[in-house]
Write a protein that binds this DNA or RNA. Structure first.
Lengths: 247, 247
DNA sequence: CGGCTGCTTGATCGCTCTCAAATGGGGTGG
DNA sequence: CCACCCCATTTGAGAGCGATCAAGCAGCCG
């Protein structure tokens, strides 16, 4: 397990506490609880009573829902400095999704009374939360649009590019996604099946665009993926033969 | 054109101003601009600079995005008392979607400085906005999950049920959706094509579940649609023959 | 009454899911 | 250190949902 630890610049590096003075940050820190989870453990489960708001201090957290039929859908990956679990605090009573640590992870948590107190005393916190929620909404809208209009290959390409950008580690010959990511995870993230993801990744590996293994993906040619993601849906079969980047 | 008019209980009926006192509401009203649009006109376009936050006073407003390839995606329908256009005010600089009046509509608008002032003076407004944004996020998550896991028929059924619930008018033999709704609109709302929507509606009409015409849908048997929406995806072809409502 | 816009309907194609089974890498326990 | 087992992954075959292409039809408005 990692030790609980704040983002590089401390609490001030967390979006929701942006712009607060030192005194306010101290007060915020004093009200926080520390929570750690080993990889695979959960911060909370879907349907559980919503009691706390979290900010990730270290590690990566996966937010996902399960349908009544048992199919999973991944909604976000949350990294250091980012907030999660805040939606139901204002509105619903239970967490509509589960939060699972995909690496060993640590977070700071505030229960509802503490969060209320902070927002009352520092309206800036509420404004920041508003902004963050707005960004999350914008991101989900983009993914909704993609799911509605693009095909699997494009969605998977875009997913890899985003995950590389958010937490890529440079390794020999490419950039590796910074946390364990199975085919199943990618499938639930892009709205398809692990079989289809496997086929797509295999094809890309053959072309040298990526190297992948057990819960591990290294992107060698991000440009190729970007080209694929932005490809016009028109020319269907041409794609198979030549890269022929349009636009 | 309708005349601009507030929701039944005035500004207090608008979610974002919930809980404000009479004095505060007066101040809010004084800072508002009135905006009206005839059916088919837009409040703002996608990509336009985001300057104002709106609350619908009368009519129905459609929020939709268009992809670079020209495909449309409907994100929400906004009715009286509901807020729209607030996301980019805190965060982005431009509206990521367009807002079109689907009936003659009226709205109240606040520009960014006015909104800032109100939230500073009345933190309750920021908290309310947080709650509303949270609800919107929850709704979009639900639709994302449906798009990822359900098939077209179920999604269309759910869409009709929601639209009936949000703005249904009782008419002879059923409940009519309260605003003009084309096959294309339904398709962009559920992530499919107008052809498929047309086929689905035709089939339902044959079974007497709905009656529909040009941009008009009357639901006669909501229970049947609800059964379809909740149907387990297992038994595939059986559906064609008998209703055989499982569970 | 004519044109336009929205709706219907048929035919075909292919992307993607589904079902089935084999393979292999890695971690664990002995 | 080795062997075993489990889980993630790969790969094949086949079917079907829904998109796409292509006309034709019908309200509605001017």
């Amino acid at each position: 397990m990692v030790e609980p630890r704040l983002p590089r610049n401390g609490l001030a590096g967390a979006g929701i506490f942006r712009g607060l003075g030192a005194a306010a940050l101290a007060e915020v820190a004093a009200a926080a609880e520390r929570v750690t989870r080993a990889a695979g453990e959960r911060f909370f489960r879907q349907g559980q009573e919503a009691r706390r708001l979290y900010v990730v201090a270290a590690g990566e957290v996966k937010i996902s829902q399960v349908t009544p039929e048992g199919q999973g859908v991944v909604l976000r990956y949350v990294g250091a400095g980012e907030m999660f679990g805040c939606v139901p605090l204002y509105g619903g009573k239970v967490y509509p999704a589960a939060a699972e640590a995909v690496t060993d992870a640590a977070a700071l948590a505030w229960d509802r009374p503490a969060a209320d107190r902070l927002m009352e005393r520092y309206p800036r916190v509420a404004i920041n939360a508003l902004e963050l929620l707005g960004e999350e909404l914008a991101a989900l809208r983009a993914r909704y649009q993609e799911l509605a209009t693009e095909r699997v290959e494009q969605r998977v390409a875009r997913a890899l590019l985003r995950l590389v950008e958010r937490g890529g580690r440079k390794v020999a010959g490419g950039v590796q996604i910074g946390f364990p990511l199975s085919r199943q995870d990618l499938a639930e993230w892009t709205g398809t099946t692990l079989h289809t993801v496997s086929r797509v990744l295999s094809a890309w590996q053959e072309r040298g665009w990526i190297v992948s293994g057990r819960r591990r993906v290294v992107v060698r040619d991000p440009a190729a993926l970007a080209r694929l993601a932005d490809e016009i849906r028109a020319c269907l079969s041409q794609r198979k033969e030549g890269p022929a980047a349009p636009a």
